[in-house]
């Protein structure tokens, strides 16, 4: 079985986000960018499935600016076999929307015919949590979101999902789209020899036009501002003072 793993280049998890003063967006120039952490988990899961003999080829895809090739190289160094880069914009600040991404991915699925798409549940920049579900809808496939355990047997996948209040287990018919949550696995680091090897792996470059997809945004970003700050509070010196303050505020 072939597995397709879409990965997104986003602002690094540890970087403090800076909102531009003129409200035009978040400053991404000269900021460290990395693979979306949830997508790292999906790459890792694909590699584990390959190691277990359930997958024979891992194709990674990234859609966005040309620099996303670095993200794809990281996935190749972790253990993916081949990459497709879809250059959809040359503007770092233009975030291609999940609907357009899902349409491009659908066209790639039609060409590549994977038995499984594994992707992160959400990107940590736009926090949309939508691409996997949208792709599944466009393909008419089953979906299993927020996965924390995945077991594939024949034409079924048993997936445990993180839901409000606990866990839900469902069984989906393959082919399927699975979006992954934090606890599914711990992604590996790429070793130096594998980073060197990854440079020789195949990476095809495409554009949305190759797939006949219009990537014009449906949502216009009117403005981006910093969230309202909370007024600074006070420090209390002891548990007694804390209890007194809470009583005064009517909180206990």
């Amino acid at each position: 079985m072939k597995v397709l793993v879409p990965v997104k280049r986003v602002i690094d998890y540890n970087v403090k986000v800076r909102v531009k003063a003129d409200g035009s967006g978040v400053d991404l120039a000269n900021v460290k960018m990395s693979m979306n952490p949830f997508d790292e988990i999906s790459v890792e899961q694909a590699i584990r499935l390959k190691e277990a003999g359930q997958v024979d080829e891992i194709v990674v895809v990234s859609i966005g600016v040309k620099q996303a090739q670095e993200t794809l190289r990281t996935a190749l160094a972790m253990g993916a076999d081949r990459a497709i880069l879809v250059v959809a914009t040359d503007d770092l600040h233009n975030d291609i929307e999940p609907l357009a991404v899902a349409k491009i991915l659908k066209a790639i699925v039609d060409e590549e015919k994977p038995g499984l798409v594994l992707t992160g549940k959400q990107a940590i920049d736009n926090d949309m949590n939508a691409t996997g579900q949208m792709l599944s809808a466009l393909l008419g496939w089953s979906q299993a979101t927020f996965a924390s355990e995945v077991e594939i047997a024949g034409d079924k996948a048993k997936v445990s999902r993180e839901v409000d209040g606990g866990m839900q287990t469902i069984e989906v018919t393959m082919p399927t789209v699975i979006t992954v949550d934090l606890r599914l696995n711990e992604p590996r680091y790429a070793s130096l020899p594998n980073i060197m090897k990854a440079k020789k792996k195949q990476m095809d470059e495409k554009t949305p036009a190759n797939y006949g997809v219009d990537v014009t945004n449906r949502l216009e970003i009117v403005k981006t501002v910093e969230p309202a700050e909370r007024a600074a509070g006070i420090k209390v010196a002891s548990v007694d003072e804390l209890v007194a303050k809470l009583k005064e505020a009517g909180a206990v």
Partner: peptide
């Protein structure tokens, strides 16, 4: 925006060919 709705609503949006507005 519960986990149930986050599971279902983007699927609805794609079937209607509209963008999702999450959260």
């Amino acid at each position: 925006a519960t986990t149930d709705a986050k599971n279902v609503m983007p699927r609805v949006a794609a079937l209607l060919d509209v963008m999702m507005i999450s959260d």
